[in-house]
Design a protein around this nucleic acid. Structure first.
Lengths: 222, 222
DNA sequence: GCGTTTGGCATACCGCCGGTATGCCACGTA
DNA sequence: TACGTGGCATACCGGCGGTATGCCAAACGC
C-alpha cells in the first residue's frame, strides 16, 4: 500500500510507469501511422517519448510487441465507436447501414487504415492477426452479418456467415482505401455507400424479407 | 553480330546475364513468398541464386527493385491466366462468373496472395501499387465490372464502376485469404463462390437484365 | 527511521542487414 | 591483338533490432 495521493491505491512508481508506457504507445502510434512499421525505428520512438530503449524493452517485448499494443488500442477504440453508432438501429438492415457508415468513418483515420488493415496482417502473420480481429471489429461485423442473414429462406449456415463476413470485411477495407486515396473524400464516401447500398438491396431482394424483419430478437450483445 | 550459337543474335554474355537475372528472380520469388519481404535478406537471395550482391545490384536497383520485378512477373502471369479463362464467356454475367473462379484460383497460389495482395501495398506504397495493378489484374476486373454494369437503368457512371471494382477487388482478396487459411480449401471455395453468386444475383435482380433472370439461386454449392 | 529489496529505467554493446564504392576480368569489338 | 566495357565479386559502412549490464530511487520489512 503506502499510497501517496489517494486516487485508487496506485503508488507513485506505478503512476510514473504508466505515464512512460502511455508516452511510448502515443509516440509509437504516431510514427507507425505516418512512416509505417518498417520505416519506424525504435530509436525514433524512444526519442519522441523522451525515454530510452531500456524503457521500451521493459514495457514491451520488442518492436512487434509495442506494435501489437498499438493495434489493440486502435481496435478497441474502433469497435466501441462502431457498436455505439449502431445502438439506435431497429431492424438488422438498418443496423447494417449504420455499421457500414461508422466503419467507413473509422477507416478514414490514417492510423486504423494503415496499421490495422494493411500492416497488421503482414507484421503479425495471418493467424495472429485473425486472433486480434476476432475480438474486436471483425466480431462486430460478424454479428451484423449474422443478423442480416439469419432465418432467411436460403440455406445460409454459420460457415456461410463467416465467409460473408470475411468478404465484406475485405470489401470495406478496399472501400476505405478508395475513400482515403480519393481527391474528394466526401464524394467518394457517397459512391461507396451507394455501392454497398446496391449490394445490400440486392441481397435483401433475394433473401426476401422486405420489411418483416422477424428474427431480430438477438443481434448483438449490446 | 559475333553470335556464338545462332539462336537470335544473342551473344554469350547476354545469355549468361539473362540467366543470372532469371536465377535471381527465381530465388527472390521463392524466398519472398515463403518468408515474406521483410524477413528475406539479400544475402539469402544471392546465396540461393549462387551469385553475390554485386550481381543483384547490377540487375536491379535494390531490394524494392527486385521485389517489383517479381511482382510484375506474377501480375502478368495472373492477368493472362484470368483473361484466358474468360475467353469463352458470352454475356457479361457469365464472364464475371468465369473471371471470379479464375481469380480465386490465382489467389490460391501463395506467391500471388502474399506478395501481390498483402505485401505489395505496404512495400511499394499505395500510389505505386495502384500503378502496378492498373496495368494487370485490376484492369481485367474493371473491364468485367464495366461489362456488367454498363447500360443499366441505375445511374452507374465510370466513377461508380471504379468504386465497384475497388470494392470487389478487396472482397476477392479477402475471399482468397479465407480459402487459403481454411482447413478445407475446396469447401471454402464453394462457399466463396456461393456468396459471390448471391451478391451477383442480387445486383442482377436490381439492375434488371431482361433476359433469362432465371432463379437459380442455389446458395450451398455442395 | 533504516537497511534491504526491487521495479523502472539508462547505457553500452553486438550481429545482421541494405546499400555503396571499388576493382577485376573475360568477352565483345575493331 | 589491343582496347573498352559489361558483368559481376569483394570489402566496407551506417543503421537497425535486440541483449546484457548497471544504477538509483521508491517501496517494504523491522
Amino acid at each position: 500500500m503506502a499510497t501517496v495521493a489517494g486516487v485508487a491505491g496506485i503508488s507513485r512508481r506505478q503512476q510514473y510507469s504508466a505515464a512512460t508506457r502511455r508516452a511510448l504507445l502515443r509516440a509509437a502510434e504516431q510514427l507507425f501511422a505516418v512512416r509505417g512499421y518498417a520505416a519506424t525505428s525504435l530509436d525514433a520512438i524512444v526519442s519522441d517519448a523522451k525515454v530510452t530503449k531500456g524503457a521500451l524493452y521493459h514495457h514491451f517485448s520488442g518492436k512487434q510487441g509495442i506494435f501489437e499494443a498499438v493495434l489493440s488500442d486502435l481496435e478497441d477504440q474502433a469497435a466501441r465507436s462502431i457498436t455505439k453508432a449502431m445502438k439506435g438501429a431497429k431492424d438488422p438492415w438498418d443496423q447494417a447501414r449504420a455499421g457500414l457508415t461508422a466503419f467507413l468513418e473509422v477507416l478514414r483515420e490514417p492510423a486504423y487504415s494503415r496499421l490495422v488493415v494493411h500492416e497488421a496482417p503482414t507484421v503479425l502473420g495471418p493467424q495472429r492477426f485473425a486472433e486480434q480481429e476476432e475480438r474486436s471489429t471483425f466480431a462486430v461485423l460478424r454479428n451484423v452479418v449474422s443478423g442480416v442473414l439469419n432465418g432467411d429462406a436460403l440455406g445460409v449456415d454459420s460457415q456461410m456467415q463467416e465467409t460473408f463476413s470475411r468478404i465484406f470485411f475485405g470489401a470495406l477495407a478496399a472501400a476505405g482505401d478508395a475513400i482515403v486515396e480519393s481527391t474528394d473524400p466526401s464524394a467518394a464516401t457517397q459512391r461507396v455507400e451507394a455501392a454497398f447500398g446496391l449490394l445490400l438491396d440486392g441481397m435483401r431482394s433475394l433473401v426476401g424479407t422486405p420489411e418483416r424483419a422477424d428474427g431480430d430478437a438477438e443481434i448483438s450483445g449490446s
